[in-house]
Design a protein around this nucleic acid. Sequence first.
DNA 1: AATTTTACTTGCAAATTGCAAGTGCAAATG
DNA 2: CATTTGCACTTGCAATTTGCAAGTAAAATT
Lengths: 139, 139
Amino acid sequence: MRSECPISCSLEIFGDKWSLLIVRDLMLHQKSTYGDFLKSAEGIATNILAARLQALEENKIIEKREHPDSKAKVLYRLTHKGIDLLPILFEIHLWAEKYFTIPEELKEMVNDAKKNKETAIKTITEQLKKQLEEEKSIV
Amino acid sequence: MRSECPISCSLEIFGDKWSLLIVRDLMLHQKSTYGDFLKSAEGIATNILAARLQALEENKIIEKREHPDSKAKVLYRLTHKGIDLLPILFEIHLWAEKYFTIPEELKEMVNDAKKNKETAIKTITEQLKKQLEEEKSIV
DNA sequence: AATTTTACTTGCAAATTGCAAGTGCAAATG
DNA sequence: CATTTGCACTTGCAATTTGCAAGTAAAATT
């Protein structure tokens, strides 16, 4: 650890160009497997993805679960700790919306949420937590 | 740009282990010079600091200003775009407080703010913007 | 005039990233 | 039931980035 600063400690976990994209995919894009993450537009390399998944798991942001369809697949899910990153992603989204040119479809998606930020965050969080409880993890 | 995703675009600007620490120092620790940032607990290397300051300036998160005391010094300030990162840092702080062991002094600092999140963010933002308007930039 | 302060730059080794190809197990197919 | 395909990685290697130590140049202090 570089310091006791909460911001610094947090950045040591997700302060890179990829980790929060995996969290985004799990949280907002219904992605849940290695293959899903690979398909994302940003084009993460296979080794980097594997490394990030391992680090996120070690830091208890995500956990591995049995895939209902096949033993060959691994289902990744956000933990409660990971789900609690939603407010951060939400604020990043709002900031980006203000300062970048964002696709209209995405803007609309957030526009409703923006009006009632706290409620929107709560709704998505509850939904993710429900999903979590219904499955078994791979230990 | 890797994609049009607002999260991804944002991470291309501040998705690393150092950039948000500089923003934190400017925003919450009344630091404003190269030397100030170097002194921070995390121990950034001089070349990395110079590179990050340049990148943050290119991305209009910070700007250089005349230092009132000396021409040898450079005063760095957050732009409006940079000040608007406060809600993100605030949410990171809250997340960290929940999942890390944080020094008591820092916890107390945030505890009041937590009760009235929106108001606290507004107060600090206004204060930073006021400071901004009162100085001249180095162009 | 000489020293110190401030904001950097430079050189180089070490670590990280990114690309391409390969591996191993599970499941589908012939 | 043998073979191919799909999925989740691993490995090797080149390129980029990081981190440390030392150096530089202008301004301020002594």
